[in-house]
């Protein structure tokens, strides 16, 4: 019998015979009809997952979810990509179906933080926060590389923590370098050309100088120490919750 609904089965779950000797579990099942579906049974729950996500910022209220689907119905990204389903991922995390979650690791980070879900959720789960925590979890566990937005956050935060100030040019340069992008991109050139056209001489001198001089907010030292201590504390807590022995970076 042919499998009529083969399209509904994930390709990696199909085992197809080649017509030659095809043996599954010691049984010869060769023949042109020999298409089999691998077992898709969920065999156990990873009971640590929910607590791990809940330990990361944004994930605190994941345990409130009762699967009504309001978040997914409201979701901006879901309207474009039906596979983007916060309701489903929250369920997988809460029940501990890790393998299932990892199948979607390359789309979970696509949340645009529009917060429509946060406003519609009847149980105040804050699904946007859960998406953020989940993306972070995937990075910390090494399932996904750091997303560009994470790298941007890091570059931005590093500079603020160091100097108490933000120098846009430098943030941009570091971000592009760290994410392996060319410094001279079309949009960067366009921006530079337009700036030259308006010739905001004071700003340009300022930006130029900023490459050599890194001014700090006066008396920043104590604030910096406090912030660094706090960030270290937080990161240590997250690593502990996720049972990561090595520092995240």
């Amino acid at each position: 019998m042919p499998i009529h609904e083969k399209s509904l089965i994930r390709p990696e779950d199909l085992v197809e015979g080649s017509g030659e000797a095809h043996i599954i579990d010691g049984v010869d099942v060769s023949g042109h009809w020999s298409t089999f579906i691998k077992s898709r049974v969920v065999k156990d729950y990873n009971e640590d997952m929910e607590a791990e996500i809940a330990a990361l910022p944004g994930g605190e209220f994941i345990h409130r979810c009762w699967q009504c689907g309001s978040c997914t119905n409201a979701c901006t990204v879901n309207a474009i990509n039906p596979d983007f389903n916060p309701r489903y991922w929250i369920y997988l995390i809460r029940t501990g179906m890790e393998e299932e979650l990892l199948r979607d690791k390359d789309i979970i980070w696509q949340c645009v933080s529009c917060h429509k879900c946060s406003y519609t959720c009847p149980r105040d789960v804050l699904p946007e926060g859960v998406m953020k925590a989940t993306a972070h979890w995937l990075e910390l566990k090494g399932h996904t590389p750091k997303s560009h937005s994470t790298v941007f956050d890091e570059v931005f935060a590093e500079q603020v923590i160091k100097t108490g100030k933000i120098e846009e040019g430098r943030v941009l340069r570091r971000f592009l370098t760290r994410t392996g992008q060319p410094l001279l991109q079309g949009w960067v050139l366009t921006m530079a050309l337009r700036m030259i056209r308006h010739f905001p001489i004071k700003l340009m001198i300022h930006m130029g100088l900023a490459n050599f001089i890194h001014p700090r907010t006066s008396g920043w030292g104590r604030a910096r120490a406090a912030i660094e201590e706090y960030v270290e504390e937080q990161e240590a807590e997250h690593r502990k919750a996720l049972k990561l022995d090595q520092p995240a970076e």
Binding site: V41, V42, Y88, T95, E100
Partner: peptide, 12 residues
């Protein structure tokens, strides 16, 4: 069957 993920379950 976990109906929300449409998957059979076998849990200890």
């Amino acid at each position: 069957e976990d109906t929300l993920v449409k998957r059979p379950i076998t849990i200890p």
